[in-house]
Amino acid sequence: MLEATNLVKKFQSGDTTVTAASDITLSVPDGQFVSIVGRSGSGKSTLLSLLGALDKPTSGSIVVGGQDVTTMRDHQLIGYRGKSIGFVFQNYNLVPSLTALENVMLPMEFAKVPKPERIERATQLLEEVGLEPDQMHRKPGRLSGGQQQRVAIARALANKPKLILADEPTGNLDTTTGKKIFDLLHALSRKENTTIVVVTHDLEIAGKTDKTFHLEDGKLVKK
């Protein structure tokens, strides 16, 4: 279960204080596929950063699997993120100097998974997301956008996380590829019983998720 309670995030921009998240409370049961929608600048990515422990809230709490993430220290958060959360980003964010296979192996290396196991798991995941064997040894620069996003999804699943956070995963892809990627995420979440939170502005995609949260000016609204 993912539970966020009274989340507030404020930024200082010059002399002005910007409230990116204002008193947000939400909960997502295990294994659910939910979406967060809203206009550009509504605070979707900020909320995802907070839920993924990439950033700390100004106030409020986030509890994942009974663990309060907001009270963790920086070095604890590194381990928590590596093992419990998978990220999928709009612009893939693969490490350009590593091959597809090495990119998927990287989170497992940080989690100290033995090398043979890393290779086996990464290969299996890349096969599941539909990457051809010869493409596994290519660097991101030699893969298409869709292929890169498949690698990013495989990387997010590497450590079998309880929670996957996806920020506009289809934003840089054409409609057909975007649909395939979404279906892939959906299928994998079902298979691995992983909770998935997707940030999107595509209402069609949002409509296919178990639950949708609407954000406006940093506040959660009911529609």
Binding site: G52, I78, R81, F89, N93, L94, V95, L106, F110, A111
Partner: peptide
């Protein structure tokens, strides 16, 4: 910078 952020996001420590 972004790559460093990615590595930190997926579990890479400052030391590494």
């Amino acid at each position: 910078k972004r790559e460093i952020g990615v590595i930190k996001a997926i579990g890479g420590s400052n030391l590494r």
